[in-house]
Design a protein around this nucleic acid. Structure first.
Lengths: 191, 191
DNA sequence: TAGAGTGATGACAGTCACTGACATCAGGCC
DNA sequence: GGCCTGATGTCAGTGACTGTCATCACTCTA
C-alpha cells in the first residue's frame, strides 16, 4: 500500500458533498472538508482550482461525451437533431447516478455562487458543441445558436427530471423538451 | 458641496473599469480602485457586493426594460415575437453607449471569473423574462425555453455587434439572429 | 542493494477579498 | 443650539487561495 490512502480527490469530493449538504456551501470551510478527508488544505487546492470546483469534476466527461457524439453523427444529419441525440446520450449517462445528481443539484440550487459556476459550465459545453458543429461545416452563428438552443432544451428537461414525482426517463424528457421548442419557434411570426 | 465628493459609486465604477483595462481584473486590487477613487475599501464593499459586481451595475436597468417591454406587449402576440421585440429595445439602449460596452466587454472577455458573472446575469435575465411570459399565460416549460432562446439570439447578435467591422445597427442584428434561429429550428426533423 | 530520482503530500507564511462593529462628521430638522 | 441621519472612515478579524520548501514512500538504475 502507498504512503497515503488512495483516491484523495474522490475522498475530497465525497467529504465536500456531505458537508455542503449538512451545513450548506458557505458554512463549510475548506479546512473542514480536508479534515474529514484526512488531508490538508494545500492538497485540496492542488486537486481543485477553487472551493466550488470540487462539485464539478464530472463536467469534463460530459463534454467529451457530447462532443464525441456530435463528431460521430452521420455527415448529412441536421445540426439540431445531432445536438439533441448528443444530449440524449448525456441524459442516459446522468441517469445512472440519479441519487448523486439529486444531492448535488440540491446543494447547487441553494447557493448563487455555485449556480454561477454551473451556468458557466453549461456555456462551456455550448462552446464545445458549437465547435464540433463548426467542424461539420455549420456556420458560426448557426453553430452557437444551435448549441445554445440545445443547452436550453437540456436545462428544461433536467429541471423536469429532477422535480417530477413520476420518475420518467431522462432521455425521453429531452425528446419532449425538444418537441416543445419546435412548437415555440414554429408559432413565431416570420419577419 | 457635501462633506465628500459626490457619486462615489460612479467614481468607483470608472476607476475600476480603467484599472481593469490597464492591468487586468486579477492584477487590480480593490485597494487600488478605491485609492484612485479617493475612497476606502469598506466603501467599495458597501456599494458593490463583491469585486466583480462593479462591472455589472447596469444589469438591473436592462432587466427592467426587458420585463416592462414584455409586460406591455399586445395580449395575443406570439411569445417569441414578444421576446424578440424586448431584446430589440434592449439593443437600442446598449447601442447608445457603444464605447463603454466595448471597453467593458473586452475586460470581461479576458477573465473567466467575470464571464461567470456575466453568464449568470444573462440567466437571471432569462428567469425574469420567463416570469413575465408566465404572467401572459405561457406554460412553465415554454416560457423558460422561449426566454433562453431569446438570450441565445441576443448573445449571438451581441457578439456580432461587438466584432463586426462594419458597424451595423444592433437591433437589426437581433432581428437577423432571430431569423437564423428560425432557419435552424425549421430545418430539424419532426420526432 | 545502495543511492538517486519522482511524485504526492505536509508545513507555513503570506496576500487579498470580504465582513462586523464602532467612530466620525456634514447637513437637515426641531 | 442640539439631535438625528446617512455616508464614510478605521480596524480587527475570517477564510479562500498561492508560493516555496521540506518530507518520504516508492521506483529505477548502476
Amino acid at each position: 500500500m502507498g504512503r497515503w490512502e488512495p483516491d484523495s480527490r474522490g475522498r475530497l469530493e465525497r467529504a465536500a458533498l456531505a458537508l455542503f449538504g449538512e451545513h450548506g456551501f458557505e458554512n463549510t470551510t475548506v479546512a473542514e472538508i480536508t479534515a474529514r478527508a484526512g488531508l490538508t488544505e494545500r492538497t485540496f487546492f492542488r486537486c481543485f482550482a477553487d472551493k466550488r470546483e470540487v462539485l464539478f469534476g464530472g463536467a469534463g466527461a460530459l463534454r467529451e461525451l457530447l462532443v464525441s457524439t456530435v463528431d460521430g453523427a452521420p455527415e448529412n444529419a441536421d445540426p439540431l437533431d445531432v445536438v439533441v441525440v448528443a444530449f440524449e446520450a448525456a441524459a442516459a449517462m446522468l441517469q445512472e447516478r440519479r441519487e448523486f445528481a439529486l444531492q448535488r443539484q440540491a446543494v447547487i440550487a441553494a447557493n448563487t455562487e455555485l449556480r454561477e459556476r454551473e451556468v458557466i459550465k453549461l456555456s462551456l459545453l455550448a462552446t464545445a458543441i458549437a465547435g464540433a458543429l463548426r467542424r461539420r461545416g455549420v456556420s458560426e452563428t448557426a453553430a452557437s445558436l444551435t448549441a445554445d438552443t440545445g443547452i436550453a432544451v437540456f436545462s428544461a428537461a433536467f429541471t423536469a427530471w429532477i422535480n417530477e414525482t413520476e420518475h420518467r426517463e431522462f432521455p425521453l424528457l429531452i425528446r419532449e423538451s425538444f418537441d416543445e421548442l419546435r412548437a415555440v419557434t414554429a408559432g413565431a411570426a416570420r419577419s
